[in-house]
């Protein structure tokens, strides 16, 4: 798949990455520098993910997008100058993205995601897909499973968003902190944290297998009373995308809200998902893109460095509650 040569960091890299090396260590920084990432879909969310991983210092990042820059992108796509309306979105990102870190190789691919085959995806360690149909996401995840490429799908509608991870068989190191008593018997008990690193592994279900998950089951309905209805909100927005072949548009605000409410009523109990959930699902709002994009980028970094437990397997950001939480969606569960 991808060669795994680990070079020592240069003094220049050590200086630039000092504050993060102090967090995740020198070895993980070296692993980052050997990884190749694909980001498909360069709206605000794609830009936020790209920004954080480029700053972290990977080997290469490829932007894949056949769409043209539209006014709507300017709500959160800070890589694209406002003068670039109508240009290809992937290409329009390059200049500002490169300025963040000249040491990362950046490429823009203006092709269509649909036309990309197995050979294309094999060039990457991690693939992040945004703004794609469920069918496309499933196709790509299945290719990634064949070749042990780590797969992420993520989407942002207005202020609401989710991410999904299929890391297949994923091994990682985890630090377990225990408290060791260091005081003498007659003294007040005083402890000091002792860190042990252990190896763990997780096996992720495919995206396809999670699609048949029964969210109407009694068990999940009960669970949603605690976590909120984010999972179904995602399902409604995905259904809208399938039905309309687009996402809700600010220009069609009132009309699209009606359509979304109709989908909600057909899929679920209206009491479970208040109307207010559909007030902020238009375009991509910058602060929310930053929140979800920060989370996805951190998961990509975790995956590549094989450090700490990844989010298994869905993650939701619910702007109504300001809560970001992991939801395990697994038919075998």
């Amino acid at each position: 798949m991808v060669e795994n040569v680990i070079h020592e960091l240069t003094a220049e890299e050590a200086e630039l990455y000092d504050r993060q090396i102090r967090l995740w260590g020198l070895e993980n920084q070296k692993k980052l520098r050997n990884s190749k990432i694909l980001i498909a879909g360069l709206n605000g969310l794609g830009a936020e993910i790209a920004k954080n991983i480029i700053l972290a210092g990977l080997k290469s990042v490829t932007f894949l997008d056949s769409a043209k820059v539209s006014k709507l992108d300017f709500a959160s796509q800070f890589f694209i100058p406002t003068t670039e309306e109508g240009k290809n979105r992937a290409e329009a990102c390059l200049l500002r993205a490169q300025a963040l870190n000249p040491m990362v190789e950046l490429t823009a691919d203006t092709g269509d995601l649909k036309d990309k085959d197995e050979e294309f995806f094999k060039k990457f360690n991690v693939v992040v897909i945004t703004e794609a149909s469920i069918a496309e996401q499933t196709r790509i995840d299945n290719i990634c499973r064949e070749h042990n490429i780590k797969f992420f799908a993520a989407d942002m509608w207005g202020m609401f968003g989710f991410s999904f991870a299929d890391l297949q068989e994923h091994e990682f190191a985890e630090d377990i902190i225990k408290h060791k008593v260091i005081s003498k018997p007659h003294e007040k008990v005083k402890t000091e944290p002792v860190t042990h690193t252990t190896k763990r592994s997780l096996k992720f279900p495919s995206l396809e297998s999670t699609l048949s998950f029964d969210f109407k089951s009694q068990y999940f309905t009960k669970r949603m009373k605690k976590t909120g209805p984010a999972y179904i909100v995602m399902k409604i927005l995905q259904k809208f995308r399938e039905d309309e072949n687009r996402d809700p548009l600010p220009a069609h605000r009132d009309e699209d809200i009606k359509k979304l409410l109709a989908i909600r009523d057909s899929m679920s109990d209206a009491n479970l998902i208040p109307d207010i959930y559909f007030e902020h699902v238009f375009g991509q709002i910058s602060p929310s893109s930053a929140i979800l994009g920060g989370s996805v980028a951190q998961e990509v970094i975790k995956t590549v460095s094989q450090k700490d437990a990844p989010h298994y397997n869905y993650f939701f950001f619910d702007p109504q509650t300001a809560c970001g939480f992991i939801e395990r969606i697994d038919t075998a569960y």
Partner: peptide, 23 residues
């Protein structure tokens, strides 16, 4: 780290936190 009281910092945490500030 100890003498300079350096607090480690990464892009993603700052992005997330600033996102919540503006929300």
């Amino acid at each position: 780290s100890m003498a300079g009281n350096i607090i480690p910092a990464i892009a993603s945490t700052n992005a997330i936190t600033a996102g919540f500030v503006v929300l």
